[in-house]
């Protein structure tokens, strides 16, 4: 579990190249590279832009580490729900 948390952190840091926030390009690259198998919209520029705006709680046009964690948490939640639903079905 600790290594998973490290991955969450280092993925953001390497995408933002050590900067505080991800700009639009950095965010787009991260989504394409990391979420292409769980997000259908990962390769649609418009959808990614929409997603970025949705996350941008402080409306500064960038994605902060906290805003990125919101996305990760949201996706993890829906993956977990799907898993629970699948388990309930097979019972």
């Amino acid at each position: 579990m600790e290594s998973a948390i490290k991955t969450l952190v280092t993925t953001f840091i390497s995408s933002s190249k050590g900067k505080e926030n991800l700009d639009s390009k950095g965010f787009k690259n991260l989504v394409e590279k990391q979420f292409s198998s769980i997000l259908e919209d990962a390769n649609s520029a418009d959808k990614v832009k929409e997603m970025q705006q949705g996350l941008d709680a402080n409306a500064d046009g960038k994605v902060s580490f906290g805003e990125y964690l919101t996305l990760v948490g949201y996706l993890a939640q829906s993956m977990s729900d799907r898993k629970t639903a699948a388990a309930a079905q097979s019972d």
């Binding site: 579990m1 290594s3 998973a4 948390i5 991955t7 969450l8 993925t11 590279k33 990391q34 979420f35 292409s36 198998s37 769980i38 990760v72 996706l75 993890a76 993956m79 977990s80 898993k83 629970t84």
Partner: peptide, 17 residues
């Protein structure tokens, strides 16, 4: 093939459950 981040999320979910 899941990405590094997807694998990390998967493992967090597995640990929780």
């Amino acid at each position: 093939m899941p990405s590094e981040l997807e694998t990390a999320m998967e493992s967090l979910i597995k640990v929780f459950h």
